[in-house]
Structures are given as structure tokens and as C-alpha cells.
Design a protein around this nucleic acid. Sequence first.
DNA 1: GTTCTAGAAC
DNA 2: GTTCTAGAAC
Length: 749
Amino acid sequence: MDSMITSRDEEMEEAAPQKAEEGKKKSIIVILVGAPGSGKSTFSEDVVKTSSRSWLRVCQDTIANGKTGTKAQCLKKATDALNDGKSVFIDRCNLDREQRSEFLKLGSPHVDVHAVVLDLPARLCISRSVKRTGHEGNLQGGKAAAVVNRMLQKKELPKLNEGFSRITFCLNEKDVEEAVKTYGAIGPLDTLPSGYFGQKNPDAKVQLGIMKFMKKVEPPNSSSKDPVSKQESKETNPSSKEQDVVAFSAQNTDKNIKTDGNSREHSAAGSVTTNDIPTLAFPSISTADFQFNHEKASDIIIEKVEEFLDKIGNGRLVLVDLTSGSRILNLVKVKAEHRNIDSSKFFTFVGDITQLYTKGGLHCNVIANAANWRLKPRGGGVNAAIFNAAGPALEISTKEAAGDAGCIEPGSALTVPLPSTSQLHKREGVTHVIHVLGPNMNPQRPDCLNSDYDKGCKILREAYSSLFDCFASIVRTLTEEFNKDPSKSVSAVPSSPIDQRSKREGVFESDSNKKYKGPKVEVGVQQKSESTQRLTGDGTAKVWGSWAQSLHRIAMDPEKYNKDVLEISDDVVVLNDLYPKAQKHLLVVARKDGLDRLTDVRVEHLPLLRTMHNIGGKWAMKLISDEPSLVFRLGYHSDPSMRQLHLHVVSQDFNSKHLKNKKHWNSFNTAFFLDSVDVIEEIEKCGKAKLNDNESLMSVELRCNKCRSAHPNIPHLKSHISRCRAPFPSNLLQNGRLVVAPNGSGAEA
DNA sequence: GTTCTAGAAC
DNA sequence: GTTCTAGAAC
């Protein structure tokens, strides 16, 4: 690592192609991203002209015998070409994630998926489109402006976590030229380094949406009187980072939106991604100055990464080295691919570990330092670079964290919170530095192991374990803080005024079931006047509209609805939710009259609740045995729409056309949804269930139930959850809140 | 609870 | 022009 500092600047730029592993030929699929007129066709043609590789350009505008074809045709042609060992350009706009997703699936250990983003000024694209006479897309004349503008509205810049191994941003024609050169120079056996190249902030466009949907929010008061403690807890919390974004955008909305990705000057903590994933960037330990064997070291890195990926929650690990020619980096990269390690959770990155955000567009809230045993800023390499970039604040925090000893043992690691005053924190968004000391194989340095690799490997393993343990602990803290109060980050919209409330009491209460409207005829003509007012357990009146009665009716007389119910016992009725909000969504309905909802439940109902839980769990297991990837949650709504206590047994994919709005999502994915295990525990302890404020919970922003990222609307959210591979957050993994397949694999999926 | 739809947002 | 939300009716 010591050589890292020398030629930093040129190394950050486009790197020359590097030879792939001997004899191993890798195809590349380049997904071009750009509006009409951005130059996608020209780009691919220029590369094809100069390249010694065999390329195929798949152009949707011409694929059907010279006419516009379909995405499916493009996919087919691309697949065939890749099978032939060719590399492929996908020449279509590919401006949103959805459009790209199918093509990303063509990636494999033998096929790298790259994106080249032709993000040229809209004006230029429009004028080219307008001027264009013989263009294949037949997009001419004045319409072009409207079309280009509309398409750019939908633009979602690609990100590595979609599955790309490399993304190149071109903001002007010079960038395009460079990219043509880079791609034109890749020979049949070459590969290009992974990571972001060119532009810096792939989240810019997404932010626009997020800012807009949050704009109701009042900017929090950012003038903290206690910069150390307050900033610290604020900025280590991924959710409250959003608050920073909100505050920032609320005050600078226009300016901020218009910078659209070019806001390199903005501080990382204030303007970067809103859905930051906890990320640890770490250098290879001991392989530079300490001269540890690279082959052995890369095996250990892979081994430890694999071991820890499950233990770091939704966090990511990134091995960083300064040069694209780094041997250790490439060894690890190849081995990671071989082992099929999830590339969204672990990848390699070429760049300066002290400038990953500002120069590489990669946001890492934690970085590791290949420290020396005294934890001093001296020496060269990563250690000096990090101390240098962080400023004196890191030295002070390090001293505090190290305590009296003031040094660390080989194989151990030490987490140091980085004060918000540090440049590295302000500029790069780094909140913690983890010092880690590896084994030394260099006779010139103290404590040399003299080639004793038995000992060396053991210590190196310990070093990575300690490092990843420290990171896991940071992720846990973040997750806990977030789970304690997810709404805190949200700039909660003020809860609704009284008039709205009363409206809901009367009318908004639901009845899910059209299907059950049939039987209603039997029940009587008095549909309209059927609404029931009852005193609930806590003495408040609850009016149940006529539409809210169907579960109650079924519970009272299940035989009548035989064809709709899955199971009837003395205590419960089990049925499929008529409007399932996920692939599988059952209801376990209590049959006891008078037990309308959770507020009515008391200690004497505990046996019934346990029965409901057990029967729900039994059905979940049955469904899992049919489809092991399903993961279930069992729970109650704080304030249900339907009369008669019912337990939801709902699979966590939320893949359903019936999930349509914010209320649907939030009623299953905020504290409005009370896990059955917790409800039982609470009643055992306190005699009744603790309910949560449903009104405000229904209006919190939409967050992924796995990685907790925020999304501006339901379609975006649904598109995200269909792809999100993050593990479930730790709070759900505890206490048996999730019902998963016996081997547990579902929860990871 | 869903459906319908106006109009806001993009 | 199309997408999306949210309020009203049921």
C-alpha cells in the first residue's frame, strides 16, 4: 500500500486495459445510456471501427429488418452474440433502471456488464435529433425536443449496485472521445477495471425525485449547539443523513436540483446519496510495506469477506487500491467472481481511499487504515495518506480511542469515530476510521515474522476478522438507531387535523371484500345502516362501516363461506386475503365475538393469541415448503380497517398488483404492523398491547423493507423491492419475527 | 378495504 | 401527454 500515494492523480483517471487471466476470454456487454441524439450509435460504431475485439451493436431502432423492434428482440440478439463469444453494445436509451434490468441479467462470470452514460447537455441532444435526417430512429423535426425532454425527465443514472462492474459517465464530447479510445483499445483478452469513471454522483437524478416528494418537510434546525455529540450521532445514522439532504434541498432547492450531478463542491455529508448503504472501504492489509505474499493474502481476504458478508447486515465491503494494475486487487477480484460473491455486497475499487467520494463517486462511511503499531501518522502509504487527509482531529480521536496503551497488536483493529470537523468527514462523508494492524513479513520493519506464514496467515485472518467485526458493530449501531425511530428521519408530515380524523373513523374504515358482498345479500338489506359502533377496550368508540364487517361475519358463521376459507377450528378461521399484498397473504381470524381488534385484547385472550400465532406459523411453513424462497411475517395492524381481530400472515416479497398505495405499504412496513411475537410478549408483560400512532405512520416516506432505502413513489419502490438483495434489517432477524425456510436461506435472498 | 377520477407532478 | 397521488363514494 505504501506506493499508493505516489502517482495518485493519474491513477484516478482512465486506466489502460489490463490483461485478463491467461487464456480466459471475457465478453463485455456495454449498456449505452442516453437520450436520442446523445450519440449512442456513433459511439458504438466508432469503437467497433477501431477495436480488435469482435463487437456486435444491438440497436433497437433497426433491429427489425431496419425498423424499430422490441426489447425482447434486442435481448435475444444480444444473448446469441454473447454465446458466440462476441461483445455487445446495447444501443437503446436505457434511461431508467427498469429498462436496463433485463440486460443486466446477461452478465455472468464470463460476461462483464458495463454502462457508458452519454449524459450530454439536453440542448445538444435535441439539436442533433432535430437536424437528423436519415436517422434510424426516425425521430425528426420539432417533436424531438419534446421527446428528449420527456425522456430525460425519467433519467435514472446507473449505479454499480444494479449489477454493473464498470460505469463510465460522459458529460461532454471530450469525455466521449476518451471513452471511445478506452473501449476501442480493449483487445480480445483484456478487461477494464471496475468502478465509476467520469462523473461523480450517480444519485443526482434520484435525489430530484426524493427531494420533491419530501418538500413538505420543514428543514430541521441545523444550527447545532453541540457540534460534537449531536453531529456525531446525526451523521452516523443513515436515516438522519436524509434529514441533511432535506434541509439542504429545502433551502437550496433550485440550485441543488439544477446542479444535477455536477455538485462536486458540495460536502459529502450534506448532498450525497440519500439511500446510503453502510460501506467499509479497506486497503489490502500487510501486502505493501509488510510484504505479505499476495496469493495467500488474497485467499484470506476472500475467505474473511465470505465469512462476514452475513454478519454486516445491509453493509458493503470494498477493497480499495490506488492503481488499476494492483496485483492484489486483481487477484481478489478474480477470486471473488470465481466464488460468486454477491458483487453488490463486496467489490474492488480503484481509487484513493481518502478521496473515494469526491474523485470516485463512491460513498464509504467507514474506511480502514493499514496502521502501524503505534498508531502514529508517520510512515508512508495509506497510513500517512489517511492521517493527512483527516487532519489533526483523527490523531486526537485515535489517542482517545487507544487509551493508555496507545498502540495495537498485530491482528487487531480499533474503531475511531471521526469528528465532523475533519475534512475527511466533511468532504468524503467518512464517519469512522478503523485502524488495523496486520502481520509483518518485512525484515526492515519491527516484529518481522521471518517468513513464518503459519503465524502470518493466522494473524492476517485475525486482522480481517477484527476489522470486519468493528465494521459490523458500526452497522449494528446504525441499524439500531434507525430502528428505534425510523420516523425521525422522515421529516414527518404533521398528523392530520381533527376533521380528517373523523372522516376516517366513519368512512375510511374498510371492507376488503367485494367477494364477500355476495353473502351480504343474505345477511340483510340493511347494508347501509349496518355499521356498528362499539366501545373498545380502552373505552373509545369505534364505528365499523358496513364494508368492514365481512371478516366478522365469516368468523361468526364460517360454514356459510366454506369455499372461501382454508381452515376452520373452534378458535379461528383461516382464509386468503381477497386482495393479497404479497405473493402469499393469509388471515387468521379469531372467532370470539366482541374481539374486534388489538385494543380489545387482554391477558385472558393470550391463549387465543398463541393459537392464532401457531396456526399462522403452521400455514407459513406449509407455504414455505411449497416455495422455499418465501419469507413470512406474522402480525397485526395497530388500527385495522376490518372488524374482528385478525392476524396477517404475509410473505415479505410484497409482490402483488393489489399493493397500490402508501397506506398499503406502510401498514405492513412501519411500526403500524405489530409482530405477533411482540404483541404476545407485550400482553404478557403489561396486560395489553401497545399500539402505535397510525395516522403519522401512514404518511412516512416509502422505505425498502430490506435495505431501508427511500423511494419517491410506489412504482419506484416496487421496482426496487423486486431487485433488492439486501438481507433483512437486524430487528426483523431477531425474536423469530421472520418465518423462513429451515435452512434460513430465504432471509438472505 | 377497493374503485373511480380530478388534478398535481413529472 | 403520461404517471401518480389522494379524496370521495361505496
